[in-house]
Design a protein around this nucleic acid. Structure first.
Length: 271
DNA sequence: AAAAGCCCCTGGATGC
DNA sequence: TGCATCCAGGGGCTTT
């Protein structure tokens, strides 16, 4: 479910409210992707100072150490005082004096991992290879083009890999390529400078619009206050196999790239 | 170094 | 209604 926009919207929905909160306890449910990495009791008494985002990870800065949270494929966070008792898929509760931060994640691809610091081996293993943030100034069209030049893999898979640019998930990869008029199967290295610039703009545009709208979501996304994205991003191609292209009317095609579905318009994305 | 596959897990939709 | 099959928004790890 969560790509960069959903993670960012989630972050914004509780960052200010949790900043300064004192951790009282941690409750763990069934195992997530990785173990917490420390004795939960060790966290009691620490304070949450800030919540940052790196790619699709959320970083909770504590007065000592930090907590990495990832929503995986099916995770969502809530932060509130007076949450109901933990239910089946609630696998992590950070109980604070201002409320409980709860990770609900049916498929358990998500994670909550404690790191002593951002320089720790554990933290670097998870965050070290991540590419640039698409919505920050470091995302530069020229550098983006140069990075694509070094990759022979299909552009869709390079976008998804996250080592060039982070946060572009399966939905927005298809959407950005449609906006840029680029065929998803095109080897990244074959994209010209002007077309790379167009893709650069498309990635920014689609992600920024989704953040502004409160997180697009095809199904059931809600932020940490339990509010749905009040708007469903109208997908141009994602999930629309066989339906007419919104620009030219040609039926949208679906293919598989690395076990993931890709959608595109054969007419608007000829090369 | 880069690319391609595999796999973790549960639930909902679809088909017989 | 019941059961099998397929599919899902991520990403680290292992193998080529």
């Amino acid at each position: 479910m969560p790509e960069l926009p959903e993670v960012e919207v989630t972050r914004r929905s509780f960052a200010d409210r949790i900043a300064g909160a004192r951790i009282e306890s941690v409750r763990l449910g069934k195992a997530l992707r990785w173990p917490l990495g420390c004795d939960p009791a060790l966290l009691a008494g620490r304070r949450v100072q800030a919540v940052r985002r790196r790619g699709k990870y959320l970083l909770l800065d504590l007065d000592r150490g930090l907590l990495l949270l990832h929503l995986g494929m099916s995770g969502s966070l809530r932060f509130d005082a007076g949450l109901p008792p933990a239910a089946v898929h609630d696998h992590f509760d950070l109980v604070t004096d201002r409320g409980v931060l709860r990770l609900n994640d049916p498929r358990r691809f998500g994670a909550a991992v404690y790191c002593e610091s951002e320089q720790s081996a554990e933290c670097r293993k998870l965050l070290g290879a991540l590419g640039v943030e698409p919505l920050e100034d470091g995302f530069d069209a020229g550098a983006f083009h140069a990075a694509l030049k070094r990759r022979q893999a299909p552009i869709k898979q390079v976008l998804l890999a996250g080592d060039v640019v982070v946060g572009v998930g399966n939905i927005y990869a298809s959407e950005a390529l449609f906006l840029a008029g680029i065929r998803p199967t095109l080897p990244a290295a074959r994209i010209s400078r002007p077309r790379a610039a167009k893709l650069h703009a498309a990635v920014r545009d689609v992600l920024a619009r989704a953040v502004a709208k409160g997180g697009s979501t095809l199904r059931d996304f809600s932020n940490a206050q339990g509010e749905s994205g009040y708007f469903q991003l109208e997908a141009m191609v994602y999930g629309r196999e066989g339906e007419p292209c919104r620009v030219c009317g040609t039926p949208i095609r679906m293919i598989r790239q690395g076990q993931r579905a890709t959608f595109y318009c054969g007419q608007c994305q000829k090369t």
